[in-house]
Design a protein around this nucleic acid. Structure first.
Lengths: 142, 142
DNA sequence: GCTACTTCCTCAAGCTACTTGAGGAGCAAG
DNA sequence: CTTGCTCCTCAAGTAGCTTGAGGAAGTAGC
């Protein structure tokens, strides 16, 4: 009852090429093949793919996911390491969210000023151009 | 008094290779060269680079910046278009921020549960692994 | 057994927005 | 004239996949 790559894709939420890619970069060990050379997936492998998908959707990098998988695989690491990784990542998310918040305010103010003072003037005279040129913002990472 | 690419980089906040790249993709027209073949920048070109840098730091895509520049260059477009672009982008930012907010909550809850119930258990038994596998989240774009 | 159709295979290139590196030349100071 | 810095071009690398080409395997119907 092994699953084809298409079925594994359907169950896990990863696309078939993505699954092959994960195999290539070593997130998933090379799976068994049928006589004809097609990949055959077991359920635990599908769960692993699902885990990867969810963790990626949470925004974790492939390398962070790799670390979590190593921890989960029991290679000399324990729970504390998973918690540390998560804590670091929460900090990252908090910082990015704060940046987006300030960005939203900046942008809203720009749009406001344009709405208040521009009346379909030629683009070059629009306050947006001026405001962007004078904007002082941190680059938004990722 | 033209500026070298290094000086233009210093003033605009773009790196020299990035400036060459912007020229290559057409955000900046090919600039004059010295007899020796080196790029020579005028101040308006440096302002343009600064505009690009700021807009990129605001998180606008290169294509969005290109659009703004076209508007600013006065090619048949006016202020309303700049405002529309901004409005669309503000929506995008708002959505991403909301996603990050919900993500932060999810992650915090995961870390909390691990801290409450795991005591340096082997990785595979850690609640984080379980929680990630069961997480239902939207992929965080960008 | 044959045909049609779908799914799969591998390998290569493309995407965004740059950065990094190789190998060589211009240019100013001592 | 040599040292050392900046600059030049061209190519490849980064993340995390997606898309496409060209061909083979598997399955359903006749």
């Amino acid at each position: 009852m092994p699953l084809t790559i298409g079925e594994a894709a359907g169950k896990s939420g990863c696309s078939a090429p993505t699954i092959r890619y994960y195999e290539e970069i070593g997130l998933l060990r090379a799976v068994d093949r049928t006589l004809g050379g097609r990949r055959a997936y077991s359920w635990p492998q599908v769960y692993r793919l699902t885990f990867i998908r969810r963790a990626r959707d949470l925004g974790l990098s492939v390398e962070q996911v790799r670390t979590l998988l190593r921890i989960s695989d029991g290679d000399q690491a324990d729970c504390g390491d998973a918690q540390d990784l998560l804590a670091t990542y929460v900090e990252e998310v908090r910082r990015r969210r704060a940046e987006l918040e300030s960005l939203e305010n900046t942008l809203t103010a720009m749009a406001q000023r344009c709405g208040d003072t521009c009346a379909n003037v030629p683009g070059a005279a629009c306050t947006v151009m001026e405001d962007v040129l004078n904007a002082r913002v941190e680059a938004i990472p990722g």
